[in-house]
Write a protein that binds this DNA or RNA. Structure first.
Lengths: 225, 225
DNA sequence: GTCTATAGAGCGATAGAC
DNA sequence: GTCTATCGCTCTATAGAC
C-alpha cells in the first residue's frame, strides 16, 4: 500500500498518490455520467472517491480538466476500434455477429450515458465532442467499413460506397432503441428483442448490398437460423 | 390563469402581462436551448426578457416549471404530426418529398438543440423526456407509418411491418448527419449533400419494400442513378 | 501529501416599496 | 403587476495545520 508499486519508473514526483488518482477518476466518471458535468459538484467527487476536496485539486487542474480526463479515459477504454471478423462465407452470419458486438457496446448503459453527457456539453466543450466522435461513432463506422471491405474481398458483398454502407448498417441496427435509451425511456434493450431486430436489419442490409440474389423463398422470418 | 385570458383588446383595467409572458417564454426557450437547463440562470432569463426576476416568478412557479412550459410550447409548435402525402404513383417521389420535410424538421438547429437539452435532463425530468419523445420522434414515426400505409393503399409498397419500416425509413435518412449535428460537429446539413443522401436512402428503402419483385430485377438493374 | 476550514461568487427564490 | 434589494444556500477554488 505505501509502496509505489504502480508508480511509473523514473517518475520521482509523487510516489504515493497513484491509487487515489485512479479512485478520483473512477468516482468522477461515474458521477459525471450519471448527473452530467454541471450536475456534479467537486464535493460529491471528493466524497465518492474517499478523499478530500483539496486532494482532488492537487491531482487535477480543476473541474473541467477532471471532466476531460474522465471522458478521454472512458472513451479510450472502450473497444470501438478493431473487431475480429469471423470466418465463413455467410454474409448474414458474419454481419450478425459483428452487429451484436457493436450494439452491445453502443447500447451499453455507460456508453449511452457518455453519449448523453458529451452531447449536453458539446457546445461548451467542442474538443471533447470531437474526441468522443472520433473514438466513438466514427471509430465504429471505420471498423464496420473494414468489416464490409473484408466481406467484399470474400466475394460476399458488393456495396457501391463502403463508407456510406457502414453508416447505413449501423443506422439499420439502431431501430428505435438508441433514441429511447438516450431519452431514458428504457434502461436496457431486451436481448430477445434486440436479436430479432438485428436479424431483420442484417437481412435487409444483405438484400441491399449482397452479391447473391436472395435465394430464400419465405421472405422474412429471421428466427429460423 | 388569472388575468391572462382577459388580455384581449377592449378590456380596461390591467391586462398588461400577456406580452411579458410571451417574452419570458421566448427568451427562456432560447437560453435553455442554447445553454441547457442548469447552464441558464433566472437572472439571465429576466435580463433577456427585459423584465425583472420577480416578474418571471409571478408568471411561472419556478425554474423547472418554466423549463417544462418552454419545452412543451416548442414541441407543440413544431409540425411533427400530420404531413400531406403528395399524390402520384411513384413511391420514390412521394417518399422523397416526405423525407425532405421530415429531415428539414429533425435537422433544424432548434430541434437539434431541444433534442440535446432534453436528453441531458432526461434522467432528472423523465416526464419531459416522455413528452418530447411522444410529440417528437414517436409522432414522426407515426406520421411516417401513415404515409407508408397510404402508399400500401395505392399499391406502391408492401412492407411486412409498417411500424418497423417507418423507423427504418427515418434511420436510413439520418445518415451520419444527426449524430454530427447533436455533437455540434456541424451546424447544418448542406442541402445538396442532404438531397443526394435522401435520394439514395429512399431508393434503398423502396428496393427493400417496393411492390416490384426483386427477382425480376436481374434483367434490369434497379440501381439507376 | 492530505486533511479541515474558509473565502468569494453566483444561484434560486422571496420581501417590501410603488 | 412590477421593480429593487436581499436572504440562504451551494458552488469552485484556496489557505493553513499536521
Amino acid at each position: 500500500m505505501s509502496g509505489a508499486a504502480a508508480a511509473v519508473a523514473g517518475r520521482p514526483g509523487r510516489p504515493k498518490s497513484e491509487e487515489k488518482h485512479a479512485a478520483i477518476l473512477q468516482a468522477a466518471s461515474r458521477l459525471f455520467l450519471d448527473q452530467g458535468l454541471q450536475g456534479t459538484s467537486m464535493d460529491q467527487v471528493a466524497r465518492a472517491a474517499g478523499v478530500s476536496k483539496q486532494t482532488v485539486y492537487s491531482h487535477f487542474d480543476g473541474k473541467e480538466d477532471l471532466f476531460r480526463r474522465c471522458i478521454r479515459c472512458k472513451v479510450e477504454s472502450y473497444g470501438f476500434d478493431g473487431v475480429s471478423v469471423p470466418a465463413g462465407d455467410d454474409a448474414r452470419a458474419v454481419l450478425l455477429a459483428v452487429a451484436k458486438r457493436f450494439m452491445g457496446l453502443i447500447f451499453d448503459p455507460e456508453v449511452v450515458a457518455m453519449h448523453r453527457v458529451v452531447m449536453a456539453e458539446a457546445a461548451a466543450h467542442p474538443r471533447i465532442a470531437a474526441l468522443f466522435f472520433e473514438n466513438g461513432p466514427a471509430a465504429t463506422q471505420r471498423t464496420a467499413a473494414s468489416v464490409l471491405t473484408e466481406l467484399v474481398r470474400r466475394g460476399l458483398l458488393r456495396p457501391h460506397d463502403t463508407d456510406a454502407a457502414a453508416w447505413q448498417l449501423l443506422n439499420l441496427c439502431f431501430g428505435s432503441f438508441h433514441v429511447r435509451l438516450l431519452l431514458h425511456l428504457i434502461d436496457s434493450v431486451p436481448p430477445a428483442e434486440l436479436d430479432a431486430h438485428l436479424k431483420s436489419a442484417i437481412a435487409d442490409f444483405v438484400r441491399l448490398h449482397g452479391e447473391e440474389p436472395p435465394a430464400d423463398a419465405g421472405s422474412s422470418d429471421p428466427r429460423t437460423s
